[in-house]
Nucleic acid binder design. Structure first.
Lengths: 157, 157
DNA sequence: AGTATTTAGGAGAAAAAACTCCTTTATTCT
DNA sequence: AGAATAAAGGAGTTTTTTCTCCTAAATACT
């Protein structure tokens, strides 16, 4: 997989915050329940996001987390950078420590092209995409529920 | 990273066998030393490759492993399939268990495009590429060594 | 000031991945 | 047949990643 489990959780967390809006403070355990992520672990990840300046954090009663920027200003790449660190993308295709641009391994050039593509995906995919896609999915679910009822009328058991 | 550590080792192993030719039997510990891979672990990986019909295995004196096919007939995808299993590529972009083509998560379509690209890379990159690239690298190293000597003459300490 | 709340941070536990070690099996050679 | 060799297979150990638990710190409210 392209990025770690914690990074997956981070993406879903930021998406959750994006859907709730930038003003409201959301507590870690609320996100954990909604997204089925282990709460203490999510707290750690949220701290990383806060240190990386992707979210605001507020202690105490009424505290919680909120996004520092709007959804379309946050790319997958930024989350990935903060949680996994970008060095993981620099790894040689076959794990050779000495492989680099100056002394490339046999797969270096082809793998580099893949890497460029992956980086583009990460940098161009924003959390806006995720928020919008959820809206689209809801419409789809409602449409499918409607079709489901029609089909039941036509096909008695 | 796209595939596991064992899969990296497998690719390097198959490349090593490709360079030695399909006839000669190569022992596990020879490859382990040459590629700096833990020998007992490599033996396990080689067994997977044998079970997956990528290599021949021979027990006893004079035994070892050899490729079942020529380098250009073995893609990275085949090695990946045998060592990691292809289900790892089916994983949702953000780790949602219920995400599939019929109930896609918000990133499903964009991630799917990335996946297609990765699959193409894996399926079109063969071990022939690796074997040829090693030859090219040797020529480059010799050329650089030559330039290194010229430069030393020009730049006394 | 004291209490409650929620994040921040450190240490440890559990799970998964990587790796090691030992026995068994199959093959070759004498 | 016996010995040597090298793969095959199983179990165990180590390392890394994921996750849990506990304490400390900061904030809001009374």
């Amino acid at each position: 997989m392209l990025y770690s489990r914690p990074c997956e959780y981070a993406i879903r967390t930021v998406a959750y915050l994006a859907r709730t809006g930038t003003e409201r403070r959301v507590q870690a355990h609320e996100i954990a329940i909604a997204e089925r992520i282990p709460a203490p672990f999510l707290a750690k990840i949220l701290q990383q996001l806060a240190r990386g300046n992707l979210v605001n954090s507020f202690k105490g009663p009424g505290g919680g987390f909120s996004l520092k920027r709007s959804a379309e200003e946050i790319s997958l790449y930024e989350i990935f950078r903060v949680v996994d660190g970008v060095e993981t993308l620099d790894r040689c295709a076959v794990g050779l420590a000495e492989c680099n641009d100056f002394a490339p391994c046999p797969l270096h050039d082809t793998w580099k092209a893949v890497r460029v593509h992956l980086l583009r995906y990460l940098k161009t995919t924003t959390l806006k995409e995720m928020a919008e896609a959820v809206v689209r999915k809801k419409e789809l679910v409602e449409r499918m529920a409607c079709q489901g009822r029609k089909k039941n009328r036509r096909s008695p058991p």
